[in-house]
Write a protein that binds this DNA or RNA. Sequence first.
DNA 1: TGAATAGTTAGGCAAATGCTTAACCAAGAC
DNA 2: GTCTTGGTTAAGCATTTGCCTAACTATTCA
Lengths: 118, 118
Amino acid sequence: MLNQDAQLDRMFHALADANRRSMIDRLSRGEHSVTELAEPLGISLPATLQHLALLETSGLVRTRKSGRIRTCTLDTSALSRAEEWINQRRAFWNSRLDALGEFLAASNSEDSKKDPSA
Amino acid sequence: MLNQDAQLDRMFHALADANRRSMIDRLSRGEHSVTELAEPLGISLPATLQHLALLETSGLVRTRKSGRIRTCTLDTSALSRAEEWINQRRAFWNSRLDALGEFLAASNSEDSKKDPSA
DNA sequence: TGAATAGTTAGGCAAATGCTTAACCAAGAC
DNA sequence: GTCTTGGTTAAGCATTTGCCTAACTATTCA
């Protein structure tokens, strides 16, 4: 449970930075080297590597090195986990809202004159 | 465009903290006052208010005050936006993977003996 | 071999985060 | 009125972030 929590922490934290989202965006269109990822961001290579390390420990990106080039790949299963967490909360709340709506519709005629600002 | 970016920054940043996710989790099950949100977290009321301010500016939570009680509500449309961002990247990458799969299947017989570790 | 390229590590620094306590205001209960 | 409850503001502090430059290693090219 705590592990799950830490995993989500890392994942959402990784997504909470515009540069890192740019990297993910780029990687969603295909694999790239570290230098290629750094270029459009206008930051140094070390800075890019730090972002990359975060993306890797969060599970969002995987990398492999062949020769002197490190190639970065998106791992969508981690993305799915983040998506799922959000979706569950949203769905839960919406179903609650639906239930409330039905309740209000049922008891509508009696309360409508009591609070006209609604 | 930059606005969109800043909005996503705030949203994912809001989601990147276990305490704030707990608050959202709680709110997905129903509305709550500030004190009610603070209790299970084991942090002070001011700390809770700071989290709440973040959740509000990120659009994830809305609050209203009646009397001396502030009631907090989940706003799922913001959640949907975060979900959508993730989904787009995931879908894009997966479709790319599918296309690659087809390509590999087509040229499979020729390359299979070249790299047995695959 | 030597030069260029791709990446990596170390150290440092300004800003942002997440918390705290102390003091304060406002609404309801007595 | 005054006590209690719920919330709010201000100030301060340790830690974490996100970046940088400088120095280094490893691979490829000539």
